[in-house]
């Protein structure tokens, strides 16, 4: 335990407001914690809840989805659709044992570099308090052991994804 826990947070940002807001934070040389890794989508409306789950399954400690303020969506109301999903997703995540602080939907406009910093900082702090996200624990070990016994890539399973036909 030499190093402080540095959470890895996946940020899924809409191109027109939040991604641009994050750009502005950079352009304005606003410094903020380096823990958020950004994935760009055209609109927050593009964000399939699977992406959020995928991030957790891959070991993210938190997921930040950010779009334009209501009314400001470049595609009129993609952000409202994301809001609808968010409401249901929050309950679902709670049922799946994921602390609410680990997932957040925010609105950051193209000129709110400071606000982006604020949200990132808040989230990083909150997630640091919670500690690392517990990937599929104990019972996943059974799967891991099995894989190990077969000598197949442990890595792949540890990553948690790769479900399918």
């Amino acid at each position: 335990m030499t190093k402080e826990f540095e959470p890895r947070i996946v940020g899924i940002l809409c191109n027109w407001c939040s991604y641009a807001g994050a750009d502005l934070a950079g352009i304005s040389r606003i410094k903020y914690p380096p823990n958020v890794r950004i994935v760009r989508v055209m609109c927050s409306g593009r964000v399939d809840p699977s992406f959020v789950l995928k991030a957790f399954a891959e070991g993210a400690d938190g997921v930040l989805v950010s779009g334009c303020h209501p009314v400001d969506c470049h595609y009129i109301e993609g952000n409202y659709k994301m809001w609808a999903r968010k409401v249901m997703l929050e309950t679902m995540l709670q049922q799946l044992g994921i602390e609410p602080e680990r997932f957040r939907l925010t609105w950051v406009s193209a000129n709110e570099g400071e606000l982006f910093k604020q949200y990132v900082t808040e989230m990083v702090d909150a997630v640091k308090k919670l500690g690392p996200f517990q990937k599929p624990v104990n019972w996943m070990t059974e799967l891991l052991e099995h894989e190990r016994s077969l000598g197949t890539a442990v890595q792949e399973i540890a990553a948690g994804g790769g479900v399918g036909e």
């Binding site: 055209m42 593009r46 992406f51 470049h74 659709k81």
Partner: peptide, 25 residues
């Protein structure tokens, strides 16, 4: 190309070019 439709397509039939489920995941 906002992709809102693909974000809620329950079968994955609706894809958003250059921002497909697979690419984003």
């Amino acid at each position: 190309g906002c992709g809102t439709c693909s974000g809620s397509c329950p079968t994955g039939a609706m894809t958003n070019t250059n921002f497909t489920d697979e690419q984003i995941m």
